[in-house]
């Protein structure tokens, strides 16, 4: 009886409040810590306005929830801890998000446009019969979003007409929230019905590196086909170490097996926007430019003066990279 009562109250309330925005952010973490793209998603959520809650789901939510508890402007942190979320599969997380949505009636559901967010949000959207909006680079109003199409060669402004807006946001287009000054309260949400045997997580083979993470690095040094071999990438690692830079690559370098796929910068790889991007032996195909042309300063080192990369580079050096890169590295010490 009591629950009936409160349900009626809730529905009356929601009628009064329906013009207000309320956003649910799906936190991305690895059970050990928060993925920084969640901080960019938080900034995007603040642009929309209204109440903001964050959902932390995983086998171990403590570290991510602790980090988020420091953020200001959060009304609530929802915790869903269960073995069902091993591997963060979309199949296990979708029922959780749907039941959370049913309980709290958010107007917006947001996550970072990472591999995690891209796999998850469209599944959630389809279950809610909503058309999701991918990889948003700007928020003009609670229903009007800006995104890039055609590998970043056109900018589309669009109005989403569905009642719930489900958007993934491009990390590099929104500042990272500093996670300071807040003390949001946490609440546990039930995880019944989330366990599934549809998809089972088997394992990961993650690339290990001491260098900064590619998508959030201040400086990125990238190599392309011009490097000629995986061994020659050592030239770039040496340069990157001098600059405390992350190392990226073009698709040609990944396809040739010089470096693993998770270093790929471009339309179908990672989107980066560092302060300084140094493209070495990269011609500058449309698909590569899509991933780096929002960098503040672009330097290109290429022996072909006609290479399209020079059209976007602030500083170009027409030179043999095998001479120029070691020289640059030595002159930086």
């Amino acid at each position: 009886m009591f629950s009936n009562c409160s349900r009626q109250l809730t529905s009356q309330f929601s009628n009064h409040l329906k013009r207000l925005q309320s956003t649910l952010i799906i936190a991305e973490h690895d059970n050990k810590g928060l993925n920084p793209i969640t901080q960019n998603a938080l900034t995007a959520a603040k642009k929309i306005g209204g109440e903001i809650s964050v959902l932390v789901a995983g086998t171990k939510c403590g570290p991510a929830a602790e980090a988020l508890a420091k953020a200001n402007g959060l009304s609530k942190i929802l915790i869903a801890e269960s073995d069902a979320f091993n591997g963060f599969t979309a199949e296990s997380l979708t029922p959780l998000i749907i039941s959370t949505q049913k309980q709290f009636n958010y107007t917006h559901i947001i996550a970072g446009a990472s591999a995690f967010g891209k796999a998850l949000l469209p599944r959630v959207a389809a279950k809610l019969d909503v058309s999701p909006v991918s990889d948003v680079i700007g928020i003009k109003s609670p229903d009007t979003f800006v995104r890039s199409i055609y590998a970043g060669n056109a900018i589309q402004t669009m109005k989403a007409n569905d009642p719930i807006k489900i958007i993934s946001v491009r990390g590099t287009s929104f500042e990272a929230d500093k996670l300071e000054g807040g003390s949001a309260k946490t609440e546990t949400v039930p995880t019944d019905g989330c366990a599934t045997d549809m998809t089972v997580f088997v394992g990961q083979q993650l690339s290990k590196s001491d260098r900064p993470e590619l998508t959030s690095a201040k400086v990125v040094v990238s190599g392309g086909r011009g490097l000629k071999s995986g061994d020659n990438f050592k030239l770039l690692y040496d340069l990157a170490d001098k600059l405390n830079a992350a190392v990226g690559a073009s698709r040609a370098a990944v396809d040739a097996g010089f470096v693993p796929n998770d270093l790929q910068v471009g339309q179908t790889g990672k989107i980066v926007a560092p302060d300084l991007y140094i493209a070495v032996g990269i011609s500058g195909a449309i698909q590569h430019l899509a991933g780096m042309k929002d960098s503040k300063t672009i330097v290109a080192i290429n022996k072909d003066p006609e290479a399209p990369i020079f059209q976007v580079a602030d500083y170009g050096l027409v030179a043999d990279l095998f001479k120029a890169v070691p020289e640059l590295t030595s002159k930086l010490s």
């Binding site: 058309s131 970043g152 402004t157 669009m158 989403a160 042309k293």
Partner: peptide, 22 residues
């Protein structure tokens, strides 16, 4: 489910300089 408000060219980067040496 959406209304396209506009499709525009992305901002154009200012022309850079070719440098003589390292």
């Amino acid at each position: 489910r959406i209304t396209v408000v506009s499709v525009e060219d992305p901002p154009v980067r200012q022309a850079g300089a070719i440098l003589p040496d390292v």
